Computed example of a mutant assay.
Amino acid sequence: MGTPGALSSGVKDMEQEYLVPECPICFASYDNVFKTPLLLPCSHTFCMECLSKLCVFQKEMETFCCPMCRAVVTIPPGGVPQLPPNMNIVSRFPPWMGELQKVWMEGSKLCWRKGYDHNYVTATPNTLSHYPPGQEENMVISIYLLSPAAPGFSQSADLVMVPRQPRHHRCNLLLRNYGCILWLFICCIMLLFFMVFLPTYLRL
């Protein structure tokens, strides 16, 4: 059985032989799972993973801008994985990639269920490497579009927490401020009174 390095080298040679195009955002070669080439209405193509990361905070039927020409694109029902693939690029895939796999969104991650007969090989460093047929069948493979430890930026180290003050505390603070203003106003009136009437009183 070959080592991971040998597998990766072999895959790269195969990709060069078949001239698999690259995503213009991440510069990783397209494949038939998470790096599926998706075609936008403006005719630009990007991989599924990059477009999903771009739209991770957006919902179905909302819009995003093409990273290349800024054309407005509507997210279809089911999310980014439901955008149409660029079949012109898919037709250039080597035979070992097989057919396009079904990928779906679950929150902030992309998921793919590996079937019994799926033989998946890719040189993409942050996704999958090699799954021979019959190994780990019916296994769900996921890619986190955010940090897997803190999807949604929920780690306390990444946030500055500002506690919301109770309403009665805010009212007390407001009254305290008005009290200071009122006290300052009374002092000014008293000072003005002494400045006007004290000289008149001293003349008597």
Rank of each mutant, 00 (worst) to 15 (best):
G2T: 11
T3C: 03
A6F: 15
L7K: 03
L7C: 07
S8E: 15
S9D: 13
K12F: 10
M14H: 06
E15N: 10
Q16V: 04
E17T: 09
L19S: 12
L19N: 13
V20L: 02
P24S: 11
P24I: 09
C26D: 05
F27Q: 06
F27G: 01
D31E: 08
N32K: 03
V33E: 00
V33D: 01
F34I: 05
K35A: 06
L38R: 02
L39S: 06
C42E: 03
S43T: 12
S43L: 12
H44R: 07
F46P: 01
F46H: 00
F46K: 02
M48R: 09
E49V: 04
L51Y: 07
S52I: 04
C55D: 03
V56H: 10
F57C: 14
F57H: 15
F57T: 15
E60C: 01
M61P: 00
M61K: 10
E62C: 02
C69F: 10
R70A: 12
R70C: 12
A71K: 10
V72T: 13
V73Q: 00
V73H: 00
V73R: 01
T74R: 06
T74G: 00
I75M: 06
P76Y: 09
V80R: 01
P81Y: 04
P84T: 04
P85N: 06
N86L: 05
S91L: 11
F93L: 04
F93H: 01
P94M: 06
P94F: 09
P94Q: 04
P95A: 07
L100T: 02
L100C: 00
Q101T: 02
K102G: 01
K102I: 02
W104D: 01
M105P: 00
E106K: 05
E106L: 08
G107D: 12
S108E: 13
K109R: 14
K109V: 07
L110P: 01
L110C: 03
C111G: 03
Y120H: 11
V121H: 03
T122G: 05
A123E: 12
T124W: 08
T124A: 09
T124S: 13
P125A: 05
N126A: 06
L128E: 10
H130P: 00
Y131A: 08
P132C: 03
Q135G: 02
E136C: 02
N138E: 09
I141D: 08
L146S: 05
P148K: 05
A150D: 12
S154M: 15
Q155G: 13
V160Y: 13
V160G: 04
M161F: 15
P163F: 15
R164Q: 14
Q165A: 14
P166A: 12
H168C: 08
H168Q: 10
R170Q: 15
C171V: 15
N172C: 08
L174Y: 15
L174W: 15
R176N: 14
R176P: 00
N177Y: 15
G179E: 11
G179H: 09
L182A: 11
W183I: 09
L184C: 14
L184E: 12
F185E: 06
F185D: 07
L191G: 09
M195P: 00
M195V: 11
V196Y: 13
F197G: 01
L198F: 14
L198P: 03
L198M: 10
P199N: 04
T200P: 00
Y201D: 05
L202D: 03
R203D: 04
